[in-house]
């Protein structure tokens, strides 16, 4: 394959992923509102379109046409760039994630690998890009000259920094077994059907990573940074219109990234199972994890920031370290 073809293919892939996941972020808000409503015996959005499906369009029009407001005392360039950082890093993280198994383009013999950049340190890159996303809320909170925003930013930083430790430590154990950081290799390690899934050999790491995933995507048991009763809307307090929308898209893209990571690392990724092809399998797993995120939001209350720190440093981190130790002993 020559250089030009590869560049064009990469651009097409990147644009496709950007378009699909931006749209999915919007659609997930609809699903989220519906499922939360059903779990609370409500109907959710009903008026725009059949069963409220077009609510996303209404929300989109509202977000795009709303006044782009910048507070008087804000540090304007940083205030403007912060949401872009969140959204951009969320999509950059998706670049190293294999979305689907390889497939042949219909009517041609051209093999498409649905991953933008197959780098050999994929998982490291994804986690790194997601942690750079922390700068979005941090800069937003510090630049907007609003105490709620500042408190929200402080909470974001303590939460993300602490749970990155858990994410990293919980991933070391399965990576020790696989011996590669590439998400494709991790996926190929589990080709042998249900019994090869890493969740059976690394259940503790799976649970730790899932809990840390909830914290890193700021989902409900740990959504301290937007805790409405305490700090209004956290770092997004002064944002409106499309800048707020970018934070939103970034958050939902992160949600998908974490779902992909959990599915690929622990649940066999896009390997086919029984009669189900691999592409359908990964979609099923992603759907389940998105549903799990919404389900937990409907059922569980928040924790306090001190409880969160206690939980992270005194429970999850020791358990992760012990898990690494045991895995190491077993491997030797």
């Amino acid at each position: 394959m020559n250089e030009n073809a590869m560049i064009i293919e990469t651009i097409i892939k990147a644009v496709t992923i950007l378009a699909v996941f931006s749209a999915l972020a919007g659609f997930t808000t609809y699903i989220e509102r519906k499922i939360l409503a059903f779990m609370q015996r409500r109907l959710g959005p009903m008026h725009v379109g059949p069963a409220g499906v077009l609510q996303i369009a209404a929300d989109g029009i509202k977000l795009f046409t709303k006044e782009d407001f910048i507070p008087q005392n804000a540090v304007k360039p940083i205030f403007k760039i912060a949401p872009v950082i969140t959204a951009a890093t969320a999509f950059i993280a998706l670049a190293a994630v294999p979305i689907l198994p390889e497939f042949i383009l219909p009517f041609t013999d051209y093999v498409v690998r649905p991953i933008v950049a197959d780098i050999n340190v994929g998982i490291l890159f994804v986690l790194g890009a997601m942690s750079v996303g922390m700068y979005g809320p941090l800069l937003a909170g510090m630049s907007q000259s609003n105490k709620w925003g500042l408190l929200g930013a402080a909470r974001t930083v303590i939460q993300l920094l602490s749970f990155e430790v858990v994410t990293g430590l919980s991933l070391i154990a399965p990576l020790m077994m696989i011996g590669s950081l590439s998400l494709i290799d991790i996926n190929n390690y589990q080709t042998g059907g249900l019994s090869d899934w890493l969740i059976w050999s690394q259940p503790v790491a799976f649970i730790l990573f899932l809990i840390a995933g909830f914290a890193e995507t700021n989902r409900t048991p740990f959504d301290l940074l937007e805790h409405e009763a305490e700090i209004v809307s956290g770092y997004a307090t002064e944002y409106s219109g499309m800048r707020w929308g970018l934070f939103f898209i970034g958050e939902y893209a992160n949600l998908f990234t974490v779902s992909f990571l959990v599915s690929i690392i622990f649940l066999g990724g896009f390997n086919p199972l029984w009669f189900i092809p691999g592409g359908i399998m990964i979609l099923l797993k992603i759907s389940f994890f998105i549903f799990l995120f919404l389900w937990v939001r409907a059922a569980w209350p928040h924790v306090r920031p001190d409880q969160l720190m206690w939980f992270c440093w005194k429970v999850l981190m020791p358990v992760a370290v012990i898990n690494i130790l045991i895995t190491g002993i077993v491997l030797i």
């Binding site: 059903f38 015996r41 409500r42 109907l43 009903m46 389900w295 059922a299 569980w300």
Partner: peptide, 22 residues
């Protein structure tokens, strides 16, 4: 106890006993 909470909301979703007045 956390799983009891999960089960309760899931049960209510499956029952689909909606109390909304449109």
């Amino acid at each position: 106890e956390l799983f009891v909470g999960l089960w309760v909301v899931f049960r209510e979703m499956c029952r689909f006993d909606i109390h909304t007045t449109q």
